[in-house]
Design a protein around this nucleic acid. Sequence first.
RNA 1: GCAGGGGUGGCCGAGAGGUUAAUGGCAUCAGACUGUAAAUCUGACACGCAACGCGUUACGAAGGUUCGAAUCCUUCCUCCUGCA
Length: 376
Amino acid sequence: MKFELLKTDDNARLGQITTSHGIIETPIFMPVGTVGSVKALTQEMLETLGAQIILGNTYHLYLRPGHELIASLGGLHKFISWPHPILTDSGGFQVFSLSEIRKTSEEGVIFRSHLDGSKHLLSPERSMEIQLALGSDIIMAFDECTPYPATLEQVEESLELTARWARRSLAEFNRRTASSNGMSENSALFGIIQGGMYLKMRQRSLEQLLELELPGYAIGGLSVGEEKGYTYDITEYTAPLLPTHKPRYLMGVGTPEDLVECVGRGIDMFDCVMPTRNARNGQLFTSQGKVNIKNAKYAKDDRPLDENCECPTCKRYSRAYLRHLYHTGEILSSILCTQHNIHFYLDTMKKIRQSIRLGLFKEFRQQYLASLSRVS
RNA sequence: GCAGGGGUGGCCGAGAGGUUAAUGGCAUCAGACUGUAAAUCUGACACGCAACGCGUUACGAAGGUUCGAAUCCUUCCUCCUGCA
């Protein structure tokens, strides 16, 4: 993996990540495909929409169908027929989201499978083994996504654990790939900064992880229920302290506004479940703001969802039809709505990149944010 | 005609004298969703109002018994099943 910083415009950065499965233009949004599928979309559709990289999840793919099975079938890219870049999350987020059914120790985390209740240990070593078996282009260190709210002491303890796990992740990565710097021919290991909502703790976490000189860094533990101001403040504080010539990934963020705001604070990569999940629940993102397609007011509305949108959904179908599909529970509802939302997110990133290229990011940001608050 | 069983809020369906404006489910309306245990979850859902309270009307219809009835009695309307 190689990262080139092509241009900056204030704090916004235009760059390019080269992996063995292709080039990623940054800033980028990465659709989430937890179990080897971006829900409701085919790989063909993702390609048509211009997705450059998608996510997979260590915990979920380990449970089903199993990383060994995937490895025996030639790796995740081949298994799901996605010849483009893939990033896998380490399972660190499941430490947070499955807190009811897991137990954390120094060694790692014991999960009770949400599928059958069986016990499984996920550790830095295990996470590396799984992600390498999957053949992921970008591998995330195994971390603990610190919950919110948390006291200073809790945050400190959590970030220290994440740092120790990061060291172990790196050691295991190097051991398995016979490399020395978290970067093999096929994969690169990214570290994750924790530290809750405390700037000092963020700095501490950052210093610990920078020592490892990993090929890329992520900011984790945001958008976990905190007030929006924190998300931006922590990002604004943390991002500039990360190495200039390495990619910066803000994990799990966010809304369209978040993307623009955080590119403006120096972020290169984003992923979020929001466009896909919300699409399935009838909430669509448009150039004029959010639209709840289930609302009665769209029953007789024969306009396209977003008149400014070039996606296959908007070019062909009406709001009335989309509402009908949602209300009748048709599978096509999820498909068309997800297609639109992913298009909207990817298109936003494309416009962001273009504006940075032209040195007009600030103008774009202002105009974009203003348009989102229009009534639709 | 005889025997038996029913009619409950938009629909289905509980409740069998008093915390019942009436459990549930569906439908409807609105909201939420941020490294996916999510095609999920939450709220509203008789009507009116100066509305975390008050008033009115409600369990096929009309009477009645009772301090009190969707729940008991009478008549009527109506639906279903079996036998003729």
